[in-house]
Protein backbone atom coordinates (compact mmCIF):
# COMPACT_ATOMS: atom_id res chain seq x y z
CA UNK A 1 0.00 0.00 0.00
CA UNK A 2 1.27 3.46 -0.91
CA UNK A 3 2.83 5.47 1.88
CA UNK A 4 0.05 7.79 3.15
CA UNK A 5 2.57 10.65 3.41
CA UNK A 6 3.11 10.43 -0.36
CA UNK A 7 -0.65 10.58 -0.94
CA UNK A 8 -0.98 13.66 1.27
CA UNK A 9 2.06 15.20 -0.42
CA UNK A 10 0.55 14.62 -3.89
CA UNK A 11 -2.65 16.31 -2.72
CA UNK A 12 -0.68 19.30 -1.45
CA UNK A 13 1.18 19.52 -4.80
CA UNK A 14 -2.03 19.35 -6.85
CA UNK A 15 -3.64 22.07 -4.71
CA UNK A 16 -0.53 24.27 -4.96
CA UNK A 17 -0.28 23.82 -8.73
CA UNK A 18 -4.00 24.60 -9.09
CA UNK A 19 -3.31 27.97 -7.44
CA UNK A 20 -0.10 28.71 -9.34
CA UNK A 21 -1.00 27.62 -12.88
CA UNK A 22 -3.14 29.90 -15.07
CA UNK A 23 -2.91 28.33 -18.53
CA UNK A 24 -6.06 26.50 -19.56
CA UNK A 25 -4.33 23.43 -21.10
CA UNK A 26 -2.15 22.98 -18.00
CA UNK A 27 -5.14 23.42 -15.69
CA UNK A 28 -7.08 20.99 -17.84
CA UNK A 29 -4.34 18.36 -17.50
CA UNK A 30 -4.15 19.04 -13.76
CA UNK A 31 -7.93 18.55 -13.42
CA UNK A 32 -8.22 15.53 -15.71
CA UNK A 33 -5.53 13.37 -14.07
CA UNK A 34 -7.05 13.14 -10.56
CA UNK A 35 -10.60 13.22 -11.95
CA UNK A 36 -9.95 10.16 -14.13
CA UNK A 37 -8.21 8.38 -11.25
CA UNK A 38 -11.20 9.15 -9.04
CA UNK A 39 -13.76 7.99 -11.58
CA UNK A 40 -11.86 4.73 -12.11
CA UNK A 41 -11.64 4.00 -8.37
CA UNK A 42 -13.88 1.06 -7.42
CA UNK A 43 -15.18 2.84 -4.30
CA UNK A 44 -16.84 5.48 -6.50
CA UNK A 45 -19.07 2.80 -8.03
CA UNK A 46 -22.48 4.11 -8.98
CA UNK A 47 -21.54 7.74 -8.32
CA UNK A 48 -19.56 8.14 -11.58
CA UNK A 49 -22.35 9.73 -13.58
CA UNK A 50 -23.32 12.01 -10.67
CA UNK A 51 -19.71 13.18 -10.29
CA UNK A 52 -19.42 13.83 -14.02
CA UNK A 53 -22.73 15.71 -13.91
CA UNK A 54 -21.53 17.78 -10.95
CA UNK A 55 -18.31 18.70 -12.79
CA UNK A 56 -20.20 19.64 -15.94
CA UNK A 57 -22.72 21.69 -13.98
CA UNK A 58 -20.01 23.52 -12.07
CA UNK A 59 -17.94 24.23 -15.21
CA UNK A 60 -20.95 25.45 -17.15
CA UNK A 61 -22.39 27.63 -14.35
CA UNK A 62 -19.03 29.23 -13.50
CA UNK A 63 -18.15 29.95 -17.14
CA UNK A 64 -21.68 31.23 -17.82
CA UNK A 65 -21.79 33.59 -14.82
CA UNK A 66 -18.26 34.89 -15.41
CA UNK A 67 -19.01 35.45 -19.11
CA UNK A 68 -22.05 37.47 -18.12
CA UNK A 69 -20.54 39.57 -15.33
CA UNK A 70 -16.89 39.87 -16.41
CA UNK A 71 -15.79 43.49 -15.79
CA UNK A 72 -12.06 43.45 -16.57
CA UNK A 73 -10.41 44.87 -19.70
CA UNK A 74 -9.56 44.01 -22.40
CA UNK A 75 -12.64 41.94 -23.18
CA UNK A 76 -14.21 40.77 -26.40
CA UNK A 77 -17.86 39.94 -27.01
CA UNK A 78 -18.59 36.25 -27.49
CA UNK A 79 -22.35 36.55 -27.94
CA UNK A 80 -24.85 39.43 -27.91
CA UNK A 81 -28.49 38.87 -26.93
CA UNK A 82 -29.93 42.38 -27.15
CA UNK A 83 -28.48 44.38 -24.28
CA UNK A 84 -26.91 41.27 -22.70
CA UNK A 85 -23.29 40.56 -23.70
CA UNK A 86 -21.34 37.37 -22.96
CA UNK A 87 -17.60 38.12 -22.76
CA UNK A 88 -15.04 35.66 -24.10
CA UNK A 89 -12.40 36.45 -21.45
CA UNK A 90 -15.01 35.99 -18.70
CA UNK A 91 -15.99 32.56 -20.01
CA UNK A 92 -12.32 31.49 -20.12
CA UNK A 93 -11.70 32.88 -16.63
CA UNK A 94 -14.74 30.97 -15.32
CA UNK A 95 -13.54 27.81 -17.02
CA UNK A 96 -10.12 28.17 -15.37
CA UNK A 97 -11.76 28.59 -11.94
CA UNK A 98 -13.88 25.50 -12.44
CA UNK A 99 -10.84 23.47 -13.53
CA UNK A 100 -9.03 24.55 -10.35
CA UNK A 101 -12.05 23.41 -8.32
CA UNK A 102 -12.21 20.08 -10.16
CA UNK A 103 -8.50 19.42 -9.67
CA UNK A 104 -8.50 20.05 -5.92
CA UNK A 105 -11.87 18.36 -5.30
CA UNK A 106 -10.94 15.26 -7.29
CA UNK A 107 -7.56 14.94 -5.58
CA UNK A 108 -9.10 15.45 -2.12
CA UNK A 109 -11.93 12.97 -2.65
CA UNK A 110 -9.52 10.48 -4.22
CA UNK A 111 -7.31 10.68 -1.12
CA UNK A 112 -10.32 10.24 1.15
CA UNK A 113 -11.85 7.26 -0.64
CA UNK A 114 -8.62 5.45 -1.41
CA UNK A 115 -6.87 5.79 1.97
CA UNK A 116 -8.06 3.90 5.05
CA UNK A 117 -8.67 6.29 7.94
CA UNK A 118 -5.97 4.71 10.12
CA UNK A 119 -3.38 5.10 7.33
CA UNK A 120 -4.43 8.69 6.73
CA UNK A 121 -4.09 9.43 10.46
CA UNK A 122 -0.66 7.81 10.55
CA UNK A 123 0.43 9.82 7.50
CA UNK A 124 -0.73 13.14 8.87
CA UNK A 125 0.79 12.44 12.28
CA UNK A 126 4.09 11.50 10.62
CA UNK A 127 3.97 14.78 8.68
CA UNK A 128 3.75 16.56 12.07
CA UNK A 129 0.29 18.01 11.46
CA UNK A 130 -1.17 19.10 14.88
CA UNK A 131 -3.07 16.17 16.37
CA UNK A 132 -6.28 18.18 16.90
CA UNK A 133 -6.40 18.90 13.17
CA UNK A 134 -5.56 15.30 12.29
CA UNK A 135 -8.42 14.00 14.38
CA UNK A 136 -10.84 16.54 12.92
CA UNK A 137 -9.78 15.59 9.39
CA UNK A 138 -10.02 11.85 9.98
CA UNK A 139 -13.37 12.15 11.76
CA UNK A 140 -14.64 14.21 8.81
CA UNK A 141 -13.39 11.62 6.33
CA UNK A 142 -15.09 8.87 8.33
CA UNK A 143 -18.40 10.65 8.82
CA UNK A 144 -18.88 12.45 5.47
CA UNK A 145 -19.97 9.23 3.72
CA UNK A 146 -22.14 8.37 6.73
CA UNK A 147 -23.91 11.74 6.49
CA UNK A 148 -24.23 11.21 2.73
CA UNK A 149 -25.90 7.84 3.29
CA UNK A 150 -28.22 9.37 5.90
CA UNK A 151 -29.18 12.13 3.48
CA UNK A 152 -30.13 9.53 0.86
CA UNK A 153 -32.04 7.53 3.50
CA UNK A 154 -34.10 10.53 4.58
CA UNK A 155 -34.90 11.41 0.98
CA UNK A 156 -35.95 7.82 0.34
CA UNK A 157 -38.14 7.79 3.48
CA UNK A 158 -39.74 11.04 2.38
CA UNK A 159 -40.35 9.70 -1.12
CA UNK A 160 -42.12 6.62 0.23
CA UNK A 161 -44.44 8.79 2.31
CA UNK A 162 -45.50 11.12 -0.49
CA UNK A 163 -45.32 12.18 -4.10
CA UNK A 164 -42.01 12.19 -5.99
CA UNK A 165 -40.14 15.38 -5.14
CA UNK A 166 -40.04 16.65 -8.74
CA UNK A 167 -43.84 16.75 -8.97
CA UNK A 168 -44.08 20.11 -7.24
CA UNK A 169 -43.21 23.74 -8.00
CA UNK A 170 -39.53 24.74 -7.77
CA UNK A 171 -39.97 26.81 -4.59
CA UNK A 172 -41.73 23.89 -2.86
CA UNK A 173 -39.01 21.51 -4.05
CA UNK A 174 -36.33 23.83 -2.68
CA UNK A 175 -38.13 24.11 0.67
CA UNK A 176 -38.50 20.35 0.81
CA UNK A 177 -34.80 19.78 0.11
CA UNK A 178 -33.80 22.36 2.71
CA UNK A 179 -36.03 20.67 5.29
CA UNK A 180 -33.68 17.67 5.09
CA UNK A 181 -30.99 19.73 6.78
CA UNK A 182 -32.82 19.66 10.10
CA UNK A 183 -32.67 15.89 10.74
CA UNK A 184 -29.17 15.71 9.29
CA UNK A 185 -27.89 18.44 11.60
CA UNK A 186 -29.72 16.98 14.61
CA UNK A 187 -28.30 13.51 13.94
CA UNK A 188 -24.81 14.93 13.38
CA UNK A 189 -24.97 16.88 16.63
CA UNK A 190 -25.95 13.77 18.57
CA UNK A 191 -23.14 11.84 16.95
CA UNK A 192 -20.66 14.66 17.57
CA UNK A 193 -21.61 14.75 21.24
CA UNK A 194 -21.21 10.98 21.63
CA UNK A 195 -17.85 11.04 19.87
CA UNK A 196 -16.66 14.06 21.85
CA UNK A 197 -17.58 12.41 25.17
CA UNK A 198 -15.88 9.21 24.12
CA UNK A 199 -12.71 11.00 23.02
CA UNK A 200 -12.57 13.22 26.08
CA UNK A 201 -12.78 10.28 28.45
CA UNK A 202 -10.17 8.48 26.35
CA UNK A 203 -7.75 11.29 27.06
CA UNK A 204 -7.94 13.29 23.85
CA UNK A 205 -5.89 16.45 24.06
CA UNK A 206 -5.95 18.62 20.91
CA UNK A 207 -2.65 20.22 21.86
CA UNK A 208 -0.98 16.98 22.86
CA UNK A 209 1.23 14.88 20.65
CA UNK A 210 0.77 11.32 19.64
CA UNK A 211 3.12 8.62 18.57
CA UNK A 212 2.38 6.09 15.89
CA UNK A 213 4.03 3.14 14.20
CA UNK A 214 6.95 4.21 11.95
CA UNK A 215 6.20 4.55 8.23
CA UNK A 216 8.71 3.53 5.59
CA UNK A 217 8.62 4.88 2.03
CA UNK A 218 9.93 2.75 -0.84
CA UNK A 219 12.55 4.07 -3.25
CA UNK A 220 9.91 4.46 -5.98
CA UNK A 221 7.71 6.47 -3.63
CA UNK A 222 10.64 8.72 -2.75
CA UNK A 223 11.33 9.29 -6.47
CA UNK A 224 7.67 10.11 -7.23
CA UNK A 225 7.42 12.40 -4.20
CA UNK A 226 10.70 14.14 -5.06
CA UNK A 227 9.79 14.61 -8.73
CA UNK A 228 6.37 16.02 -7.87
CA UNK A 229 7.95 18.34 -5.32
CA UNK A 230 10.49 19.53 -7.89
CA UNK A 231 7.73 20.10 -10.46
CA UNK A 232 5.65 22.08 -7.98
CA UNK A 233 8.63 24.04 -6.67
CA UNK A 234 9.74 24.75 -10.24
CA UNK A 235 6.27 26.00 -11.18
CA UNK A 236 6.19 28.30 -8.13
CA UNK A 237 9.67 29.63 -8.92
CA UNK A 238 8.90 30.16 -12.60
CA UNK A 239 5.62 31.90 -11.80
CA UNK A 240 7.43 34.11 -9.23
CA UNK A 241 10.10 35.13 -11.74
CA UNK A 242 7.46 35.85 -14.36
CA UNK A 243 5.47 37.93 -11.86
CA UNK A 244 8.62 39.95 -11.02
CA UNK A 245 9.15 40.57 -14.74
CA UNK A 246 5.49 41.46 -15.39
CA UNK A 247 5.45 43.83 -12.42
CA UNK A 248 8.71 45.40 -13.69
CA UNK A 249 10.51 44.53 -10.48
CA UNK A 250 13.27 42.34 -11.94
CA UNK A 251 14.20 41.24 -15.46
CA UNK A 252 17.02 39.12 -16.84
CA UNK A 253 17.43 38.70 -20.60
CA UNK A 254 18.76 35.16 -20.14
CA UNK A 255 15.35 34.12 -18.74
CA UNK A 256 13.42 35.09 -21.88
CA UNK A 257 12.76 31.41 -22.83
CA UNK A 258 11.39 30.88 -19.30
CA UNK A 259 9.13 33.93 -19.59
CA UNK A 260 7.83 32.58 -22.90
CA UNK A 261 7.22 29.14 -21.38
CA UNK A 262 5.31 30.57 -18.41
CA UNK A 263 3.20 32.79 -20.68
CA UNK A 264 2.37 29.87 -22.98
CA UNK A 265 2.09 26.90 -20.63
CA UNK A 266 1.72 28.02 -17.04
Amino acid sequence: MTDPRLRVWLLVCVCTLALVVESLPALGALAVLPAVALLLHPQVGGWRLRILGLYALFAWSTAFSQALFYAEFPRTPLLRLGPVVFWREGALYGLAQSLRFMATLSAGVLLAVSTPVDRLTAGLVALRVPYGLVLMATAAVRFVPVVGREWLSIRAARARRGRPAWRRPPWALLRLELSLLLPLVARSLRRARALAESLETRGFDPLGGVTGPPLRATAAELVVGGATGLLTGGAIAARGLFWAYAAELWYHPGLRPLYAFVRGWL
Binding site: D118, T138, R191, L195, E197, S198, L199
Partner: peptide, 15 residues
Protein backbone atom coordinates in the same frame (compact mmCIF):
# COMPACT_ATOMS: atom_id res chain seq x y z
CA UNK B 1 -13.55 4.86 31.15
CA UNK B 2 -16.89 5.97 29.72
CA UNK B 3 -19.05 3.98 27.29
CA UNK B 4 -22.27 5.28 25.72
CA UNK B 5 -25.19 3.62 23.91
CA UNK B 6 -24.21 3.44 20.28
CA UNK B 7 -20.76 1.96 19.61
CA UNK B 8 -20.86 3.30 16.07
CA UNK B 9 -20.77 6.91 17.30
CA UNK B 10 -17.89 6.33 19.72
CA UNK B 11 -15.32 5.00 17.29
CA UNK B 12 -13.06 7.41 15.43
CA UNK B 13 -12.73 4.89 12.62
CA UNK B 14 -8.99 4.42 12.74
CA UNK B 15 -9.02 0.62 12.92
Amino acid sequence: GFVAQDPEDQLVGTG
